Simulated scan of single mutants.
Amino acid sequence: MPPVKQQPCPFAPLIFDDEEAIGELSSVVLQLHDALSTNGRCFTTGATEEKAAATRGRIESVLLNAFCTIFGQSPFERFSDIFDQASYLAEHMAKDHIFEDGNKRTSLVFALSILALRNVPVVFPDNPDPKSNPYYAWIQDLVSGKRTREELAQELRSNHISK
Results as ranks from 00 to 15, higher is better:
residue 40 G to W: 04
residue 40 G to V: 07
residue 40 G to N: 06
residue 41 R to G: 14
residue 42 C to K: 05
residue 42 C to E: 05
residue 43 F to E: 12
residue 43 F to C: 07
residue 44 T to C: 10
residue 45 T to Q: 14
residue 46 G to D: 08
residue 46 G to A: 08
residue 46 G to W: 09
residue 46 G to C: 09
residue 49 E to Y: 09
residue 49 E to Q: 13
residue 50 E to K: 14
residue 51 K to D: 11
residue 52 A to K: 14
residue 55 T to S: 02
residue 55 T to F: 01
residue 57 G to D: 08
residue 60 E to F: 00
residue 63 L to F: 11
residue 64 L to M: 11
residue 64 L to H: 12
residue 64 L to F: 10
residue 68 C to M: 15
residue 68 C to H: 04
residue 70 I to R: 08
residue 72 G to P: 01
residue 72 G to E: 04
residue 73 Q to N: 07
residue 74 S to M: 06
residue 74 S to R: 11
residue 75 P to Y: 04
residue 76 F to S: 13
residue 77 E to R: 10
residue 80 S to E: 13
residue 81 D to H: 03
residue 81 D to F: 02
residue 82 I to D: 00
residue 83 F to T: 05
residue 83 F to V: 06
residue 83 F to K: 02
residue 85 Q to L: 08
residue 85 Q to W: 03
residue 85 Q to V: 09
residue 87 S to I: 06
residue 87 S to T: 09
residue 87 S to R: 01
residue 88 Y to E: 02
residue 91 E to S: 06
residue 95 K to C: 14
residue 97 H to N: 13
residue 98 I to V: 15
residue 98 I to P: 07
residue 101 D to K: 10
residue 101 D to N: 12
residue 104 K to T: 10
residue 105 R to S: 10
residue 105 R to C: 11
residue 106 T to D: 08
residue 106 T to K: 08
residue 107 S to H: 01
residue 108 L to C: 03
residue 108 L to D: 00
residue 110 F to G: 00
residue 111 A to H: 02
residue 114 I to G: 01
residue 116 A to D: 15
residue 117 L to E: 13
residue 121 P to D: 13
residue 121 P to Q: 10
residue 123 V to N: 14
residue 124 F to H: 10
residue 127 N to Y: 04
residue 128 P to D: 14
